[in-house]
Write a protein that binds this DNA or RNA. Structure first.
Lengths: 265, 265
DNA sequence: TATAAAGGTGAATCCGCAC
DNA sequence: AGTGCGGATTCACCTTTAT
């Protein structure tokens, strides 16, 4: 595994995620944020090392695809548990296509789910099919290594902020498990497109609620590294993994742009 | 299996759920609504017929408990698929304790998830521990038998109603996957308590969105039968299953009370 | 009499302290 | 070091008092 980019607070690895996770020291990471790919076995996505093969054998084999996806999720989730500190926590985001496999994998791997968060998108696009409810949320899972862990939660910070514009946050009251945050607007994607780019407001809540300044944050499916930008902007250190160098190049541009902007006197 | 109560539109069975589901004719049910018990293996709950045994062997065995729960959920979910009509659908509700096992079991059993719904409870009780976000929602899964099914969805009814008091429903716009509905208040529990009684407003959306007048609705964990009351009140037929006769007695009282009220001239 | 303000109650979980 | 007790925490809802 080769380091693709390295500054003291921002490191990127170009690698298969399962390989890269083997290289991270055990018990070294404070918080993991993971936005794994959806529908692996339908999209023909393949992982290296023969661990994951593309399957798309028709409708009769739907459950085979589901279980192949599960095997992959189980593998990276187990590896993440090894590199997480005793009191560290993991976040996983997804829609119903992947989140049930991931949640179940967490629970069968010894993690304890602390919260599941419903991220409500008030600007979700309308549904053209008229055959179901308009999908307008994603789920975030937040889990700790075990029931014995003493995980970190910045309770007062979460409670006191009004989280500008969240219609569900009652000022001065506790932050709840349903968050109203718009999907990223085009102007936030200044450096190009990423299929599932998450809004900065969402990652800010994740990072600020569950880590402190100086903590080490890992994103195993980093993409354009919104997680890393938010981490660094808030004084955390970041490691990102991706198997696509285009996304990592985009990550580097975004990182440098942010650093340049913060050096303005 | 013995019928515990039977009217033309409201039937109750006192039985183990796995036994009872074997007795329902194949392809006979339009909609299933299931609110399965949480944390089966922690509470020492046991199912008859040796299919489910209590396990509580300490923390080292957490994953054993998770997988025992999964086995149970998988069994009733598979049986439900047999009795569902070709174009029928199933709803499953739960918190993160059970919903990931149920969602994964749906996906591995050939169902296709149509929507996952976030039921936001604006009156959720506070979090006293201050160690995590205030749990203030539950999840509902809605699935059809396969990707080939032509399931029923009363789109225009859902869109046109304003769903009195839901701060997230925009009048005249499509109904979304996040619903704001308060938890039942004490006055709704006129006939006693049930641990996880669901609000009538919630069940109304479920029944009205996915079934028509005359359809057959089944609740395999019926408890005090809020599902049945809403079904019958809207002209549907209902079958409820529970292994607790106290809950079934309560169901009968609520049914008769409702019938009496509707007969007033 | 109706509405508003003020006050009391209860729920679940974590933590520290005494032993 | 393991056990167990008690205090602290918050907010919806109900009751009481005031306007």
């Amino acid at each position: 595994m080769k380091t693709y980019f390295a500054e003291s607070d921002f490191q990127l690895y170009l690698a298969d995620v399962l390989d890269a996770l083997d290289e991270i020291p055990a018990e070294s990471v404070d918080v993991i944020f993971a936005d794994p790919p959806y529908n692996l076995s339908n999209g023909g996505i393949t992982c290296r090392s023969g661990r994951m093969v593309s399957v798309n054998k028709g409708e009769w084999d739907v459950s085979r695809g589901v279980e192949t996806d599960y095997d992959f999720h189980k593998q990276w989730i187990v590896k993440c548990r090894k590199i997480l500190k005793e009191n560290g926590t993991i976040w996983i985001s997804g829609t119903y296509h992947s989140i049930y496999a991931c949640g179940f994998a967490l629970q069968t791997s010894g993690y304890q789910i602390i919260n599941d968060i419903c991220w409500y998108k008030p600007n979700a696009p309308p549904n053209l099919s008229t055959k179901y409810f308009t999908a307008s949320h994603e789920t975030l899972l937040w889990a700790r290594k075990s029931t014995k862990s003493r995980h970190k939660f910045n309770y007062n910070l979460m409670k006191s902020r009004d989280w500008n514009g969240d219609q569900l946050k009652i000022p001065g009251k506790q932050m709840r498990s349903v968050w109203s945050i718009p999907s990223p607007k085009p102007e936030e994607k200044t450096q190009g497109k990423h299929p599932t780019q998450k809004p900065i407001k969402l990652l800010s809540r994740v990072i600020l609620s569950s880590s402190d300044v100086g903590d080490l944050i890992l994103d195993p499916f980093t993409g354009s590294s919104t997680t890393g930008l938010v981490a660094v902007a808030n004084g955390r250190r970041f490691i990102g993994i991706d198997n696509n160098s285009d996304f990592l190049d985009l990550s580097i541009r975004r990182y440098k742009e942010m650093k340049a902007a913060s050096e303005v006197p």
